[in-house]
């Protein structure tokens, strides 16, 4: 417990530094996003290969033909992710029949803890219509890169499982052909989210 300050600081910073290096491209995307460049920014989204709660492989191609609402988070997230997923579930209810054209997707940025079984049970607690996806570290890094999503591990204690994840707080509305349509803020209420989505679904 009473490590010298230097080694404590180093121990705390090393994993963060490693993550930042690996995720440099994601961080670049975040910089673009944070400067309101989203509508002008092409190339959000792209091919991915992931695994659903039943252990089945899901790719971007599997999901073509429906609008997607893509959100990145993790199941150990105690505060923000449940709020967002509840808003998504509420938006689905408010959209009524229109929601049949929409597939919400929750992709974990914490594949080490979020196994297929864990992610499937988690999304089911909010709505059976939300598709939870996980993958290998490389698969998650690849899909995060495609979506310009930033994520980083933050230690909260000494144990191997003692960490939280910082992650982008943006949902991506994608067209049935896989093209990016619009960002939706993760802190929107169900009503705001439903209105934003309906606007784009009606325009399409």
């Amino acid at each position: 417990m009473v490590l010298p300050m230097n080694s404590r600081v180093r121990a705390a910073l090393l994993p963060v530094a490693a993550f930042m290096l690996v995720l440099g491209i994601g961080a670049g995307g975040w910089l673009l996003l944070s400067h309101n460049a989203v509508p002008q920014l092409g190339g959000i989204g792209g091919p991915f290969t992931l695994t659903d709660g039943a252990g089945q492989t899901v790719t971007d191609r599997t999901l073509r033909g429906r609008y997607l609402l893509v959100y990145f988070g993790y199941t150990f997230c105690p505060d923000v992710c449940p709020t967002t997923l509840t808003a998504v579930a509420g938006a689905l209810d408010k959209l009524g029949k229109q929601a049949d054209r929409l597939q919400p997707v929750f992709i974990t940025v914490d594949p080490a803890r979020d196994t297929p079984k864990v992610i499937g049970a988690y999304t089911a607690a909010f709505s059976s219509r939300i598709l939870g996806l996980t993958g290998t570290d490389d698969q998650i890094a690849a899909v995060a890169r495609e979506y310009r999503v930033y994520y980083a591990k933050r230690r909260t204690g000494e144990g191997p499982g003692d960490y939280t994840m910082d992650h982008s707080s943006i949902l991506y509305l994608m067209a049935p052909d896989g093209h990016f349509i619009a960002p939706i803020a993760a802190n929107e209420t169900a009503a705001q989210m439903a209105a934003d989505i309906a606007r784009h679904l009606n325009a399409g």
Binding site: C81, R154, D166
Partner: peptide, 19 residues
């Protein structure tokens, strides 16, 4: 086993938590 004082906040489009 553990209870921590935390604050969630949004930092330019990133959900972060601080202890």
């Amino acid at each position: 086993g553990m209870a921590m004082l935390h604050e969630s906040f949004d930092d330019h489009g990133i959900s972060r938590m601080r202890m």
